[in-house]
C-alpha cells in the first residue's frame, strides 16, 4: 500500500516534470512561430476588413474589400489566371511526371534513368529568378524558340511570347512545367520503388502491357505520392511570385497578373493595404479549398 502510493507520487512527479520540460523545449519554437506566422495571419484577416493606406487612420469597411475583388476585373482576373497556372504548374507536371517516372521505373532502370532523374530535377534547385531569365532569353524575339519556328517554316507565328497578350500566360506556364516536372518525377519514382515488385511481376505474367500496369497498379498505389505532388505544385501555382515577377511582372497589361504579384503591388506600391490583405485571405482560402480534397482523396484507403 505504502509502496503503491510512493510509486504513484513518483510517477506523477515524473509526469509533471515531463510536462515542464516538454513545454520548455517547445516554447522557443512556438513563440517564434506565433510571432512570425500565427499573429500576422490573424492580423492579415483583421486588416482585410479595413480601408487603409498603411500610414493614416484605418476605416472599417466590413467585407467591402472582398466585394471589390469580385467587382474589379483586374483583381478577379488574377484569380482566374492563378487557376490557369494550376493547369500548367500542377496538372501537366504531375500527369507527365507519372508517365515519365513509370517509363524510367520500368524501362530505364540503369544509368540512363539516373541521369534523366538528375537532369530533370536540376531546374528545381536553381533560383526561380534564374529560371525566369533562362526562359525570358529563350522566348524573346531573337530567342531560340522563334529561330526554330522560322527554321521549320512557321516564321509567321513568331512573336515576343512573354509580351503577347494571348501567349504570355501559357509561356509562364511553360516555365513552371520545366521547373516542377523533375520534382514530381523524383517523388513518384521513390513511391514506385516501394511498390512490391511481385505485383508488377504477376501483372506481366497475366500479360498486362505498360498502359494496363500503369492504370491498374501504379496510379492507385501511388495515391499518397500523387497527393503530395499535387499539394506542393498547386501551392506553387496559386502563390506564384518569383517566376512571374521576373519574366513578365504581370504584364502585358494584366495578362499574367496573379494574386501573388497583385498583393505585392497593392500593399507595397499602391498602399492599398486593406485590399491587399483581402486578396491574401482569398488566396489562402483558395489554397485550402483546393488542398483539402486532394489530401482527403490521397489518404483515403492509402496505407
Amino acid at each position: 500500500m505504502a509502496l503503491a502510493v510512493s510509486q504513484q507520487t513518483r510517477l506523477s512527479k515524473r509526469v509533471r516534470r515531463e510536462t515542464f520540460v516538454g513545454w520548455l523545449f517547445v516554447l522557443p519554437a512556438l513563440l517564434m512561430y506565433a510571432v512570425f506566422v500565427l499573429v500576422p495571419l490573424l492580423l492579415t484577416i483583421l486588416y482585410s476588413l479595413y480601408r487603409w493606406d498603411g500610414v493614416g487612420p484605418a476605416t472599417w469597411v466590413g467585407l467591402k474589400n472582398y466585394v471589390t475583388i469580385f467587382e474589379v476585373p483586374d483583381l478577379i482576373g488574377t484569380i482566374v489566371n492563378a487557376f490557369w497556372l494550376v493547369v500548367f504548374f500542377s496538372f501537366i507536371p504531375v500527369g507527365l511526371g507519372l508517365v515519365v517516372a513509370s517509363v524510367i521505373h520500368r524501362v530505364a532502370t540503369g544509368r540512363l534513368g539516373a541521369i534523366a532523374r538528375t537532369v530533370l530535377f536540376l531546374p528545381q534547385v536553381i533560383p526561380l529568378v534564374a529560371a525566369g531569365i533562362i526562359w525570358g532569353w529563350l522566348l524573346a524575339l531573337p530567342g531560340l524558340i522563334n529561330q526554330i519556328l522560322k527554321a521549320v517554316g512557321l516564321g509567321a507565328i513568331t512573336r515576343a511570347w512573354l509580351g503577347d497578350f494571348d501567349w504570355a500566360l501559357p509561356a509562364v506556364g511553360l516555365v513552371g512545367i520545366w521547373v516542377l516536372l523533375g520534382f514530381c518525377i523524383v517523388l513518384l519514382l521513390t513511391g514506385m520503388t516501394k511498390v512490391d515488385p511481385a505485383l508488377y511481376e504477376s501483372a506481366r505474367i497475366d500479360g498486362a502491357g505498360w498502359f494496363r500496369e500503369f492504370v491498374a497498379i501504379t496510379v492507385p498505389l501511388l495515391r499518397y505520392e500523387i497527393g503530395v505532388c499535387l499539394t506542393v505544385t498547386v501551392i506553387a501555382a496559386l502563390a506564384a511570385f518569383d517566376i512571374v515577377y521576373v519574366s513578365t511582372a504581370g504584364g502585358p497589361g494584366n495578362a499574367t497578373s496573379v494574386p501573388g504579384i497583385q498583393i505585392y503591388v497593392l500593399a507595397f506600391t499602391q498602399r492599398a493595404v486593406g485590399l491587399a490583405c483581402a486578396l491574401a485571405v482569398m488566396l489562402m482560402a483558395l489554397v485550402v479549398i483546393v488542398i483539402l480534397p486532394i489530401q482527403w482523396l490521397s489518404r483515403e484507403g492509402a496505407r
Binding site: L238, A276, A280
Partner: peptide, 19 residues
C-alpha cells in the same frame, strides 16, 4: 504546425513589414 505549412508567404508579409 503541420497543417499550417500550407500558409502562403503573402498571408504574413504585410503585418510583419508593419511590425
Amino acid at each position: 504546425l503541420v497543417g499550417l505549412q500550407v500558409v502562403p508567404l503573402q498571408m504574413t508579409l504585410i503585418p510583419i513589414s508593419r511590425l
